[in-house]
Simulated scan of single mutants.
Amino acid sequence: MTARGARWGRIPDPVVDAVAVAVAVVDVLLSLEDASRVAQALAALACAALAVRRRFPLPVFLLTLPASLMLDIVFAPFAALFTLAERSRDRRPLIVCAIMFALASAVPWPLDDLSAHDRAWTLVYFFYTLATAASPVLLGQLVQARRDLARRLVEIEEAREHERLLHSQAVLARERAQLAREMHDVVSHQVSLIAVQAGALQVAATDPEFKAGARTIRSLSVDTLDELRHMVTLLRASGGRATELTPQPTLADLHKLVTTSGIRAELTGELPPEVNTTAQRTAYRTVQEALTNVRKHAPGASATVRLWRADDGDTFGITVTNTPPTRPSLPLPGSQQGLVGLRERAELLGGTFESGPTAVGGYEVNLRIPARTD
């Protein structure tokens, strides 16, 4: 948004409405010569109705038509038509309203018998007024498109930032896992050998000082090995505070994942407490991927995350359902492998993963895992 657009956006709506009503009143006052009381009342009603045109754009426009028929006014119907075009996504009513305004402006009042010459000029004036009425319609549609574009640009930037954050967290998780493997396979192994050799020297040594030195080396090696094992555990679990993006999430993190997903989402139900760590990670990743897809491919939709357990107790699962999008989806960056990875995770646990559109235009993913996966 430009600096000028930002300044206009900071003007309060009541101020804009008051200015619109004032300009409409001036326009009416210039056309009140020899006007009847009925025409004056209709003109006053049209001007006053502009104050609520944002909430009731179509009724306000219809209220301006009688005044347009009886008086030569332009601003009030144009303002109402602009507001209607700015808020309507169906162009057919806009065409009908533009034609109605052109008729109301072109048809003479009172409706007397017209000569052939007058009828011809009325027809010419009708098409001239219809072409003029296209201006507020096109301007309103342009403002609506600009607003939608700005909102979509924000959504794209948020999605890209989310993707970058996910990628950085994935890279960090891989680096932590690699470092943990190196420490476990190489460093811990070498320290273990030092502890064993020091123990052997302690047993075989006859010199008390040599034996004490070997005992010290063995003690330090054992302590170092414990510290290394503790560090390896921390590296494998998480590199920082627990968030929805940590590499080892659990069911306890689902609530925060849903509430911070950036969409209107609700979490219902619960899973059995004996679910193992691998199954908890699979359940978490399923919800995470489903909510990310809703955010990317169904703008404006809401989602429901339902945790459930079968009546026989042999299986449990997660169902994520979203409503139809309220705006057209955008081509956002992605690997297109998220659902494939979830299906592979489910198959490794002996479960199933299904996804597809719903009957009402939304989307649903369903994860089913056996209760015993060990």
Results as ranks from 00 to 15, higher is better:
residue 111 L to H: 00
residue 74 V to G: 06
residue 90 D to Q: 15
residue 97 C to S: 14
residue 91 R to P: 12
residue 68 S to T: 15
residue 84 L to C: 11
residue 42 L to M: 12
residue 66 P to W: 00
residue 77 P to Q: 02
residue 99 I to C: 13
residue 126 F to L: 05
residue 47 C to W: 02
residue 56 F to S: 15
residue 46 A to I: 02
residue 68 S to H: 12
residue 140 G to C: 10
residue 21 V to P: 04
residue 82 F to V: 06
residue 27 D to S: 06
residue 144 Q to P: 05
residue 140 G to F: 04
residue 31 S to E: 11
residue 71 L to C: 10
residue 64 T to W: 00
residue 118 D to E: 13
residue 97 C to M: 15
residue 36 S to Q: 05
residue 93 P to I: 12
residue 94 L to C: 09
residue 84 L to S: 10
residue 130 L to P: 01
residue 87 R to V: 02
residue 61 F to T: 00
residue 74 V to S: 11
residue 51 A to L: 14
residue 127 F to K: 03
residue 26 V to L: 14
residue 65 L to R: 04
residue 62 L to C: 14
residue 117 H to L: 11
residue 111 L to E: 02
residue 29 L to Y: 15
residue 89 R to P: 03
residue 59 P to Y: 00
residue 107 V to H: 08
residue 106 A to H: 00
residue 100 M to G: 14
residue 109 W to F: 15
residue 70 M to G: 01
residue 20 A to E: 12
residue 23 V to F: 10
residue 108 P to G: 06
residue 118 D to S: 13
residue 91 R to C: 09
residue 17 D to V: 06
residue 24 A to H: 02
residue 44 A to M: 10
residue 51 A to W: 09
residue 17 D to P: 00
residue 147 R to P: 00
residue 20 A to M: 09
residue 90 D to I: 15
residue 103 L to K: 07
residue 23 V to L: 14
residue 59 P to F: 07
residue 102 A to S: 10
residue 126 F to N: 08
residue 75 F to D: 04
residue 88 S to V: 08
residue 107 V to K: 01
residue 128 Y to A: 15
residue 99 I to D: 13
residue 126 F to E: 01
residue 43 A to E: 02
residue 118 D to L: 04
residue 39 A to H: 04
residue 111 L to Q: 05
residue 20 A to W: 08
residue 108 P to F: 12
residue 23 V to P: 01
residue 28 V to G: 07
residue 147 R to L: 09
residue 141 Q to M: 14
residue 140 G to A: 12
residue 18 A to E: 13
residue 60 V to Q: 01
residue 106 A to V: 08
residue 141 Q to K: 00
residue 60 V to H: 02
residue 19 V to E: 03
residue 142 L to F: 13
residue 108 P to S: 01
residue 45 L to S: 07
residue 117 H to R: 08
residue 146 R to L: 13
residue 107 V to W: 02
residue 66 P to I: 11
residue 85 A to K: 09
residue 88 S to R: 09
residue 47 C to R: 01
residue 22 A to N: 06
residue 99 I to L: 03
residue 18 A to I: 12
residue 92 R to A: 15
residue 129 T to W: 05
residue 122 T to W: 11
residue 123 L to M: 06
residue 119 R to V: 11
residue 76 A to I: 06
residue 58 L to M: 11
residue 34 D to L: 10
residue 129 T to Y: 12
residue 17 D to Q: 11
residue 104 A to S: 09
residue 57 P to M: 07
residue 147 R to N: 09
residue 124 V to F: 00
residue 117 H to S: 15
residue 106 A to M: 05
residue 56 F to Y: 11
residue 110 P to A: 07
residue 139 L to P: 05
residue 127 F to R: 00
residue 131 A to W: 07
residue 33 E to H: 15
residue 84 L to Q: 12
residue 143 V to N: 02
